[in-house]
Design a protein around this nucleic acid. Sequence first.
DNA 1: TTGAAAGCGCTAACAA
DNA 2: TTGTTAGCGCTTTCAA
Lengths: 341, 341
Amino acid sequence: MENYLIRNDDDAVSKITIQDVADALGISKTTVSRAISGKGRIGSETRNKVLEYIEKNNYKPNPIAKGLAKQKTYNIAWIMPGDPGVTDLPFFQKCMSGVICEAQERDYDVLISMVYDDDISSLKRIVTNQKIDGAVLGRTLTDDENVRFLKESGIPFVVIGSTDEKNVIQVDNDHVKACGELISILLLKGLKNLVLICGSDRHIVNLTRREGFESAIGSASKKIKSEIYMNSDNEGAVGRIVDNAIHENVECIVCADDKICAMVIDKLHKENVKIPEQIKVASFYNSEIIENNQPPITTLKYDPRELGITAASLLFSYIEGNEVPGRTYLPYEVMLKGSTQ
Amino acid sequence: MENYLIRNDDDAVSKITIQDVADALGISKTTVSRAISGKGRIGSETRNKVLEYIEKNNYKPNPIAKGLAKQKTYNIAWIMPGDPGVTDLPFFQKCMSGVICEAQERDYDVLISMVYDDDISSLKRIVTNQKIDGAVLGRTLTDDENVRFLKESGIPFVVIGSTDEKNVIQVDNDHVKACGELISILLLKGLKNLVLICGSDRHIVNLTRREGFESAIGSASKKIKSEIYMNSDNEGAVGRIVDNAIHENVECIVCADDKICAMVIDKLHKENVKIPEQIKVASFYNSEIIENNQPPITTLKYDPRELGITAASLLFSYIEGNEVPGRTYLPYEVMLKGSTQ
DNA sequence: TTGAAAGCGCTAACAA
DNA sequence: TTGTTAGCGCTTTCAA
């Protein structure tokens, strides 16, 4: 037989208030408040007395009350896509951990909002309920409802990724440059026939990666044959593209992200096509799956956690009224591995 | 040249307060409050008038103020491991999405806390800062600091997973039964020589899975040869165990989770050992990687999102003062696939 | 059925 | 250097 639990309020944390502290010390709330905040003139003796008492009695100012008085929540939102298969991506987890880490340092907490392509009600709730002081948006779309809504609401926010919207603080890797660089290197190795497989063309990251690919092809010294497939991040599409690539003697399959790359590797494996002997493979984003592959795959390497840290840091800076750059690019690395040798 | 942004408070959301509503309607705050909450006597005419006005002018009560008055935050915490390689697990993402979904329905928000094996400071901050009304803990450890701290703090909480601690509301799958059932089926097929590979023995889930394995072996009608490896969720250990299994003519390798299973599959592949012809493989937890494998792997199937939903739902029920079962088991499914044929 | 007033715990002018 | 006082926006007794 199961045991049942009933809520018992007796054991709630005993909450001591600023008034209690003031009374105990025979001073006023104001003085206590000043001792804590460090603002306003106060005798160092009094301050120490207060600080000591607070420390000993483990007093913590109630942030709700503080928030009401200062019109702040001490919360920011982390907004990420909630669609299954996307939420899971380690990329977002790592960004999030960066955001959390940075928030923590400022005694802020992170409230999570999951949005779906056509449903940003969760974000709207949080904003209209005034539960946050700012937000970090995990990715950008073309014609992005989240961005539009956040701008309208006037709440400070930073996006991870790029957007054409004006006056939006953006943190991203320079995908155009990075992808261009990777492709240029491959072309210098003499490759003349490549395909690029991308996911949704509503994800701006895919558009910028494509742009990098195209620019490298465009500025190549020789004539290059290339094909680009958008919206092809499913097994069926990847399968057909790979089949076709094999048939057309494509020299290198370039994947916009690790998920697509994993599918490509899988498919090539099933078809018994050897990497890199029969066909080369490169990816614009790496991950564990790809790193541990045999042979390891040539990829671009970014630091998602750093994106989160930077985004949050900029957000706080902006909230505090500082001048903040419109766009920040974080570094990348080109990792040349066996898959393109 | 980059553009720089400076925070401009002019565009902040215009906040209309309960007083504004009262003034506009020529009634008192109290009446407005009553109309909204539905508590206390109020003329239906007045109520409608208020509701209508609120609707039209898009008034939202400030939850901070409400929180201060009612001593609530309207936030719960989702506590998950922050260690890299663990945070990423789709399991936690899916639980989290369940928790969020359930919270949303009650106009609660979810605040996220990442804890590390020996560092629960993030949880402590959130609790002592009184920023939450309750918490859902994503997994349980032996001798769990999180559980201990949450109990001491007196804050309502529910754990996903099991624990020996008394008076803790737990939501889990019955791993003992599920794993026992899967193994029993394999034994009925005539297998007589198996190994089980588990991760950390500080994770209670691994202990319960082991228990299920052992109980099935113990109650088998024939004599079964079996070996159990704990703390073996790294490539090196898995490699050695698999090598050894091949050498010892083990019939079936059972993996405590999908990550281990992926490593096992990979290793067998490298060694050119065919599944299921030369060795069979089963996993106590499934995932996309495993489902798409060729041949598909025999696994247990759970619904992590449902765990999150149930945990949050129990938490709210408990917060509201209801009687709540100490332990809730959610269903599982045994998926027999080609890997054990 | 409605309203006045006190209070939730804190901050911040303004006075002293 | 310290205290008084008036909020922040809401809920909730207690009166009317």
